[in-house]
Each structure stands twice: as structure tokens, then as C-alpha cells.
């Protein structure tokens, strides 16, 4: 009883902050948009039909999935060595190192992107170095395109991967690696045969979290893509705030939400089956 009572604030916040807006959004998605952009109250699936039959939607979906899956995989791959370094560090340094690994979360997304512009821009640090050393004559195009979004999104997902992996690998008994060493395994074989397989659930969890965050990422594709990268989130933004087609924006948001929920449920089912089997 007291437990339920203690859950009440969280339930309220979730209800007011998430469930109710989603209900409103769902309602809007059934409205109709006139050809001059006005919204008419209705109960129609026209907007959904319009979105689903538009080839561009499927391009968006494909772009979004490949971008976030690639960046999530890269983020996990980059976060793993960092996490292993933290795990093997002397205990008194571990807290500080973990804090540094997740510190980017404390910086606002926009500020981070300003930093990336200074680094990756045509006149940025990387290009100044490359042209200064005579390696390239034309600046490399590292931002305002898909490359920029990939770099920025991977970087922004890394701290989340580090968080998940630090928690996941923390439970991994270091005695297992010692046991492998005493059984004649070199460091690299220990990593491949023991550490990696045992870290797999944590790696998968980190990947899924990063993927979901990547799919819903807006700021990085918008600000680092130079208008050349079209994903579901940027399209929702355009629909809501440029063309003011709220039913379409809402319908697309509902489709995204539905897909993400389905993915989560599927993952839950798969893990449950694996545990049971």
C-alpha cells in the first residue's frame, strides 16, 4: 500500500508529462489538414494513409534506421574500450574516470554542436591541421552532411553506452579473466573468449538504448546535417514548425512511437525467451 503511494509522484509525472501529451498527439493525428494548412477536427485516417503511401516516408524510415543503427554500433564499439579501461583502473580513479566518460551528458546538445563546428568545419581544427600539413588541399567535408551527423550522433550516444556498459561490466567477475589467464589464455584471447561473450548482454543493452535514442535524435541531424540529412525527427520538426501541418507531424510521431514500443516489446519477448530457454 505504502509502496503504491510512493509510486504516486512518479505516476503523476509520467501521466501529466508523457501519457497525456501522447493522448493529445494521437487525437491530433486523426484531424484533417486543409490545402491551405488549417486543421479541421475530424476522425480520419487520411493523414496516416498520406504518410504511409508517400515514398519519402520510407526513405526517411530507412535513413533513420541505418543512421541510428550504425551510430549506435559505433558508439558501443568506442565505449567498450573506455569502459574496460575504467574497469581495470585503480579503484580510486574509477569514479573520476566514469564521471569523465559521461560528462558530455552535462553539456547541452547545442553547445556540443558549436564545438563540433569549430573542430569539423571547413575552416575548423581538423581541416586546418590537414591543410597545414599539406595532406589535403581542399578541406574535407566533415560537417553539414551525413558524415557530420554520423560523427556527432556517435559522440552524443557514447556517454549513454558508457553508462550502460559500466553498470553491465561492473557485474562481470574479473576472476574469470584471471582464470582464463592461468589456463594459458593471452590477453587478447581472454578478451575474445571470455570478456566479450560475457559482456554481450550489456553490449546489446547499450546498443538498443543508443539505437532508440538515435532514432529519436533531432538536434544532431538538424544542426550537423546542414539540411542534407532527412530523418523522421527532422521531418516531424519541419511538419510541425515550418509547414504547420500538425496532423501529419502527430501521425508521424505516433508511427515512430509505435515502432519504438514494438521494438522494445519484441526485445522483451526475445530476452524473456532466452532466459526461459
Amino acid at each position: 500500500m505504502i509502496g503504491l503511494l510512493l509510486c504516486l509522484p512518479a505516476a503523476l509525472i509520467l501521466g501529466v508529462g508523457f501519457v497525456w501529451p501522447v493522448v493529445l498527439l494521437a487525437r491530433i493525428s486523426f484531424n484533417r489538414t486543409t490545402d491551405m494548412g488549417a486543421m479541421e477536427e475530424a476522425w480520419t485516417l487520411d493523414t496516416y494513409a498520406r504518410i504511409v503511401t508517400d515514398d519519402f516516408t520510407w526513405d526517411l524510415a530507412w535513413n533513420t534506421i541505418t543512421l541510428s543503427a550504425g551510430c549506435a554500433a559505433a558508439a558501443v564499439a568506442l565505449a567498450l574500450p573506455v569502459t574496460l579501461l575504467i574497469r581495470n583502473a585503480p579503484p580510486r580513479w574509477r569514479g573520476l574516470m566514469a564521471l569523465m566518460a559521461v560528462a558530455p551528458l552535462l553539456v547541452s546538445g547545442t553547445a556540443r554542436i558549436v564545438g563540433w563546428m569549430a573542430i569539423l568545419g571547413d575552416q575548423g581544427m581538423v581541416n586546418a591541421l590537414l591543410t597545414g600539413l599539406g595532406i589535403t588541399s581542399d578541406p574535407l567535408r566533415l560537417i553539414n552532411n551525413l558524415t557530420g551527423v554520423r560523427i556527432g550522433l556517435t559522440e552524443s550516444l557514447m556517454p549513454y553506452c558508457c553508462l550502460v556498459l559500466i553498470a553491465g561490466l561492473g557485474r562481470l567477475d574479473s576472476r574469470l579473466e584471471e582464470a582464463a589467464a592461468t589456463l594459458g589464455a593471452t590477453r587478447s584471447r581472454t578478451f575474445l573468449r571470455v570478456t566479450l561473450p560475457l559482456a554481450f548482454p550489456a553490449l546489446l543493452a547499450a546498443f538498443l538504448l543508443a539505437f532508440v535514442l538515435g532514432v529519436s535524435a533531432f538536434i544532431t541531424p538538424r544542426l550537423m546535417g546542414g539540411g542534407r540529412v532527412f530523418v523522421v525527427a527532422t521531418e516531424i520538426f519541419d511538419l510541425a514548425l515550418e509547414t504547420v501541418d500538425w496532423p501529419a507531424a502527430a501521425a508521424m510521431a505516433m508511427l515512430l512511437l509505435g515502432t519504438l514500443i514494438a521494438a522494445m516489446v519484441l526485445r522483451g519477448v526475445l530476452t524473456a525467451r532466452k532466459v526461459a530457454g
Partner: peptide, 19 residues
């Protein structure tokens, strides 16, 4: 020739920053 189709924060700032 276009560097960006989403000037951020705006075109004036990009000019002042030499971008």
C-alpha cells in the same frame, strides 16, 4: 556551393564567425 541549408543559429552569425 552551399555549406548548409539549416544556418545555425542564423546566417548573420555564420558570417560573423567567418564560416
Amino acid at each position: 556551393s552551399v555549406q548548409t541549408f539549416t544556418p545555425n543559429p542564423d546566417g548573420y552569425t555564420l558570417i560573423l564567425n567567418d564560416q
